[in-house]
């Protein structure tokens, strides 16, 4: 029983990290129908900025985190102004291609500034685990669980009730109609990217504290894309629950199937389940069901 519980709890907290990262994809998709391939690089910007402040300038961690969030915020706005503005009313696929280009360009710039070696954070989260009954959980994961749940609440409310959130959804649904209703698509895009950059930045900082920061961190950005797809690309609860679901699935299949099948099932199982679920619900677990009949 302890074995099972430990696996489930570990799966949940690791899934929370996936959820945080997947949230960035969902936010941008939800408000602009675009899949952002530069999500991984946005992670890196947050992680590197925070690392520089903490490790090089010895800024207290919370302050460093706040500054990094501001940097991400302005980066998001800058990306909109420099890259995306010319794509307003252009096909979505063009924007997606632009994010691919953005990803390469950003990776290059980041490597010039921070090089490719692994940067390690000084110990910020105490390494002693939190013991709940028979189960041990590391603190940094526990914090990410709290943060991702908090974000779930904040963003669900934001999209449901705030004017900005509603305007974002309207823009995603039909840009031209939104423009003609007097919604400033420029502002919406800027806000979207700013928020997504901030979410990615926070994710990057947490990941950096788990495993150090180097350019390969950005790959995690892409590996969680299945999480977002599983949950439904336009659903915030979907991203969070999708993340937790994949985390638990990985952990359980690692614990129970790996010994039977000789290892490596942990990495594959989520994808098998993903395919099965998408066969039954092609729009993801919580995605918006759009069916056009002809």
């Amino acid at each position: 029983m302890t074995f099972f519980l430990q696996l489930v709890v570990t799966g949940l907290v690791v899934g929370a990290v996936y959820a945080m990262v997947a949230l960035g994809f969902v936010l941008i998709y939800k408000s602009s129908d675009v899949i952002n391939f530069a999500q991984g690089e946005l992670l890196l910007v947050g992680a590197y900025t925070c690392w520089t402040l903490v490790a090089v300038y010895h800024v207290p961690f919370l302050l460093a985190m706040a500054v990094s969030i501001c940097v991400s915020l302005f980066l998001g706005i800058a990306i909109e102004r420099m890259v995306l503005r010319s794509f307003i009313n252009e096909p979505v696929i063009s924007v997606i291609m632009a994010t691919l280009g953005l990803s390469s360009a950003m990776r290059g710039i980041l490597q010039v500034i921070w090089s490719t070696d692994t940067k390690t954070f000084p110990e910020i989260f105490p390494s002693a685990p939190v013991i709940i009954g028979p189960i041990a959980v590391s603190r940094v994961y526990l914090y990410s669980l709290f943060i991702s749940l908090a974000m779930l609440v904040i963003f669900s409310l934001f999209f449901k009730y705030s004017n900005m959130g509603i305007a974002m959804r309207a823009t995603a649904d039909d840009q031209q109609a939104a423009l003609s209703m007097g919604i400033s698509v420029k502002v919406i895009f800027a806000a979207t990217w700013a928020i997504a950059a901030v979410v990615a930045g926070i994710g990057g900082i947490l990941l950096g504290n788990i495993n150090g920061v180097n350019p390969s961190l950005s790959h995690i950005g892409l590996t969680v894309l299945p999480v977002a797809i599983l949950g439904g690309l336009d659903s915030i609860p979907g991203a969070i629950l999708g993340g937790l679901f994949i985390g638990v699935l990985e952990s359980l299949s690692g614990g129970y199937l790996d010994p039977l099948l000789g290892g490596g099932v942990k990495e594959v199982a989520p994808f098998v389940v993903l395919v099965l679920i998408l066969m039954i619900r092609p729009y993801g677990l919580f995605g918006q069901e759009i069916i056009e009949r002809v």
Binding site: E250, P259, G263, K266
Partner: peptide, 22 residues
């Protein structure tokens, strides 16, 4: 007594380690 695969980019190795312990 056991062989376990841990991915190079793994964020967690709990399930593998518990199996090694077992």
């Amino acid at each position: 007594v056991d062989k376990e695969i841990v991915d190079l980019k793994a964020l967690d190795a709990t399930s593998q380690l518990l199996n090694i312990q077992k």
